[in-house]
Amino acid sequence: MKHLLPILCLFFSTLSAQEVFIDFQPVMGGKALVIDDTGAAAGAEKVVEAMRFYLSDVALRSEGQVVSTSDKRHHLLDAAQPETMRFPLSVPAGVAYDELSFTLGVDSLTAASGAFGGDLDPTNGMYWTWRSGYINFKLEGTAPECPARKNRFQFHVGGFQGPFNSERAVSLGVSPGKTIPVKIDLDRFFDQINLAATYQIMSPDDRSATIADLLVELFR
């Protein structure tokens, strides 16, 4: 019996932990976002060519207390690769939760600590080269009203050093289920951003800090 107990505990804990998928769903024009990187639109209509962003410390909470965290501390999500937009958290059975929390971006301590591999490897194209810092949120595309060359807009929101640190804490109320859908409302983004005036953000400054604030509001 003495030997059986740990095995039984292990058995039941495996049996009783459940996987909850966090499913990020970008929405534009009221529909699921379709990445169009063909260049075919050529400014005739608004298209998103790339949308990639980092999440750190994804957790489910109950009354503010963390009940489950992701195995991976940092996730790189790429709207062009649906498998990256959805990942599981393991929640012990019978444990309730009412909140999903994460940091939008690479947390600043990690960003200050040198080179890393995996999702954080600079080969992913999400690390600035001309200066230190991860690009925490990248959104690129074309729109007719955008006056840039080839009507392109490029938002590279990043940086971890004060006063323009772009990491943002996000907290969402959620109900338990096998999948927790998180809408990313790009319509709200384009409602707030006038592409005729603001279409190239690639440095950490007060403009990018304002956009980082706006990004928090997109997650619902």
């Binding site: 080179a115 080969t123 080269t129 001309w130 230190s132």
Partner: peptide
Amino acid sequence: GAHHHLDLQALAPISHPAEMGSNIKDVV
């Protein structure tokens, strides 16, 4: 002081169009 960490500093000359004109993905 553009870079704060020796590990990542090398990305700058690798990527600068007037220096090595490449990027770390292509280098790899």
